[in-house]
């Protein structure tokens, strides 16, 4: 049973989560295949903050390898978890994970199309080299989400089986197209590997990529926080939400666009990291109930915490080699999904 937290005390949940996140980020900075003392880490950060021209030997490892990755893990974790919570509100079902219902596949398809098609049409160079992949990925995500929503809505209600089956179909098509592209059409260099698109990786994230991701994710996350009240009303059904004064068509589009943009940008740069959007909201709901005004900000932080832990493990468990992060998130997320599926069995009758 969730705890009932009075509205005034909710702020403390956020403070506690933020504290855990910051502590973990600090810990993650000190964890890695290379042994670096806390003194050296402090020195690197001090040098960077004072724009000192003298830099100690481990500066690149902290500043160019670990820190961008940690910031990216926080951003991507928060983005995926909030996107998951938004979609679960929209679909009125806790199973609506961006990876499971096909949004990630849609984005990956968009990204692959962007990588292959645009250059073949002569559209390369300049800002396009940097922007084409994320833009195509986001477009793919938004398109697929609208499609899934239309296909799984039967008579004003969300048909859960249709939603999951549409996801299976989109994932299958996406997997096939990406497989075809990776093995037959483009060079491996351009397209990354098949495992990148299916399992994801934060390996080798550079500051400019973190910057571009933040440009989309930070406004998306902030806008999401404003959607708590209307999404609460949405859980009663679209008509009920309208009766409660929610501008349903507008909110619906806003939720689809924001969540799909956030998933799209993360897929473009970090591939298909699964289950964060399922696990983070579920933990928060189990602990504090389904109120989106609490759920959305708490999800942002718990998602960041989860992905930060997963990525720190990914880069250290098999050190000096690297583990695919999707393997870790799936090991935690898969059983979660099964558990939710069992709880939702009644609704799944086709």
């Amino acid at each position: 049973m969730p705890l009932r937290i009075p509205e005034k005390r909710r702020i403390w949940i956020h403070v506690a989560l933020l504290f855990i996140l910051l502590m973990l980020a600090w810990a993650a900075l000190g964890i890695g295949p290379t042994k670096i003392s806390w003194g050296e880490i402090g020195q690197v950060l001090l040098d960077r903050m004072t724009f000192s021209s003298e830099k100690i030997a481990v500066d690149p490892i902290i500043w160019q390898l670990r820190l961008p990755r940690i910031v990216m893990a926080i951003l991507v974790g928060a983005g995926l978890a909030v996107a998951g919570a938004l979609m679960q509100g929209l679909f009125r079902n806790p199973l609506a994970d961006p990876g499971l219902i096909g949004v990630s596949s849609g984005s990956a398809m968009g990204a692959v199309v962007g990588i292959i098609i645009l250059p073949s049409m002569g559209l390369t160079g300049g800002w396009l080299t940097f922007a084409a992949t994320p833009i195509c990925a986001m477009a793919g995500g938004v398109g697929i989400t609208f499609l899934i929503y239309q296909l799984s809505r039967v008579g004003g209600r969300i048909h859960v089986a249709s939603m999951l089956l549409t996801g299976i179909a989109v994932n299958a098509i996406g997997g096939a197209l990406i497989g075809l592209a990776v093995t037959k059409i483009a060079t491996a260099e351009q397209l990354q590997s098949l495992t990148f698109w299916s399992l994801g990786s934060l390996n080798g994230i550079l500051w400019p990529v973190v910057g571009i991701t933040a440009i989309i994710l930070v406004p998306g996350l902030i806008a999401s926080m404003w959607l708590g009240r209307p999404l609460n009303a949405f859980l009663f059904g679209e008509l009920e939400a309208y009766h409660l004064g929610v501008d349903v068509p507008f909110i619906k589009r806003l939720v689809i666009v924001i969540s799909a943009l956030m998933v799209g940008i993360t897929v473009a740069f970090t591939g298909g990291i699964g289950f964060i959007g399922l696990v983070a909201p579920h933990i928060i709901r189990l602990s504090f109930g389904p109120d989106h005004r609490l759920l959305l900000p708490a999800c942002a932080m718990s998602g960041a915490i989860l992905l930060l832990i997963a990525d720190t493990a990914a880069r250290t468990i098999a050190a000096p080699a690297e583990l695919q992060i999707g393997i870790l998130t799936a090991i935690i997320g898969g059983p979660f999904f099964l558990m939710l599926l069992l709880k939702n069995r009644k609704e799944l009758s086709i």
Binding site: G32, P33, T34, K35, P60, I61, L65, R66, A188, E189, Q192, S193, T195, F196, S201, N203, G204, I205, L206, V209, R315, A319, P320, A321, E322, Q324
Partner: peptide, 25 residues
């Protein structure tokens, strides 16, 4: 699927590799 920090953690004075190294990032 090489981890840059994994390579650097071996404190190499020299890395010899080929252009096949990945991922691109």
């Amino acid at each position: 699927n090489i981890s840059p920090e994994g390579v650097l953690s071996m404190r190499p004075d020299l890395v010899v590799t080929t252009e096949s190294l990945g991922p691109p990032a």
